[in-house]
C-alpha cells in the first residue's frame, strides 16, 4: 500500500481510523488487511474495480458489517463499543439505488426524524437541492435523480456528522449526476465530510480531496488526490489506465 501525507497529522484530523481490518465471508477474504485514516473534512473517494470490496468498506463504517479481525475507530472511540443505533444516526448512509419507503416525501423524511415539522422538511429538502413543492409528493412519482436527492435529504434529516455514499450517481444520467456531485461538494464545504464510492475516475477527480483505491480487497493507494498520479503501485497505474470515465 502506498500512502501520502504526514500520518500523525492525518490521525489527528481523522474521523475514522482502521487498524489491521480484515473481513472474511465463509472463509473467503473480502477485505484487508486495511490500516489507514479517513479525514474529518472534504470528500474521500473510494474507487476500485467491481468486487474490490468498496461497499464492504463503506458498510464497516456504520456497522452494517463488522470486521472479522482488526479495529475501527470513530472519532477516537472503538466502533464496536458504540451504540450502533446512535452511530448510524451520526454516520448517515446513502445507497447506490435510491430506496424510498411508501407514501410521500415527508413520510420518508419522518422515518429519519420522527415528528419532523414541515419547515424542517423544507429546510433539508433545500439542502438536497429540492424545492418545497416536493414535501407532499408521492415518492412513486419521482425521477431517479429526484429520488436520490430525497434519500440524501432523508439522511440529512437525521443530522449526521458524516455521510457515506455508495455510488449514489451510478443510475443517473449526466445532468442529475453532475448536480449531485455539486451537492456533495457543497455539503463537504459546509462541514459534513463525505466518504463517496465511485467507479468513475472522472467523478473521483472532480469531487475528491482524498482517495482510497481498493483492488482485490487491498488498499493500493490511500492518500490525497494529488499524490495519486505519482503512486508507485503497478496495480494502481493499471487501474487508472483501464478505469471508466463518464462525463
Amino acid at each position: 500500500m502506498s500512502t501520502s501525507g504526514n500520518s500523525k497529522d492525518r490521525a489527528k484530523d481523522s474521523i475514522f481510523e482502521l487498524d489491521g481490518v480484515v473481513v472474511e465471508v465463509d472463509g473467503r477474504k473480502i477485505l484487508g488487511e486495511l490500516s489507514g485514516a479517513v479525514r474529518a473534512s472534504g470528500i474521500t473517494a473510494v474507487a476500485g474495480p467491481s468486487g474490490s470490496g468498496k461497499s464492504t468498506f463503506l458498510r464497516l463504517l456504520n456497522r452494517l458489517e463488522v470486521p472479522t479481525r482488526g479495529q475501527i475507530s470513530y472519532r477516537g472511540a472503538d466502533l464496536s463499543t458504540l451504540d450502533p443505533l446512535a452511530l448510524r444516526r451520526e454516520v448517515g448512509m446513502v445507497f447506490q439505488r435510491p430506496v424510498l419507503f411508501g407514501g410521500t416525501v415527508i413520510d420518508n423524511l419522518a422515518v429519519a426524524a420522527p415528528g419532523l415539522s414541515a419547515d424542517r422538511a423544507i429546510e433539508v429538502l433545500a439542502r438536497a437541492g429540492l424545492g418545497d413543492e416536493y414535501v407532499d409528493r408521492e415518492v412513486d412519482s419521482l425521477s431517479g435523480g429526484e429520488a436520490q436527492r430525497v434519500c440524501i435529504a432523508r439522511t440529512l434529516a437525521a443530522e449526521p456528522s458524516v455521510m457515506l455514499l455508495d455510488e449514489p450517481t451510478s443510475a443517473l444520467d449526466a445532468g442529475p449526476r453532475l448536480a449531485l456531485e455539486d451537492l456533495g461538494v457543497e455539503l463537504a464545504a459546509l462541514g459534513t465530510p463525505l466518504v463517496w464510492i465511485t467507479h468513475d475516475l472522472g467523478q473521483m477527480e472532480r469531487i475528491a480531496t482524498d482517495v482510497i483505491i481498493l483492488i482485490g480487497g487491498q488498499a493500493e493507494y490511500w492518500g490525497e488526490l494529488g499524490g495519486l498520479v505519482s503512486s508507485d503501485s503497478k496495480r494502481v497505474r493499471e487501474f487508472l489506465r483501464g478505469g471508466t470515465r463518464a462525463s
Binding site: 452494517l64 448512509m93 445507497f95 430506496v99 419507503f101 434519500c151
Partner: peptide, 13 residues
C-alpha cells in the same frame, strides 16, 4: 434487504 438496511442506516432498531 436494501429497504431494511436503509431503515437500519437511519438508526431504526
Amino acid at each position: 434487504r436494501d429497504e431494511v438496511e436503509a431503515r437500519l442506516s437511519l438508526g431504526q432498531p
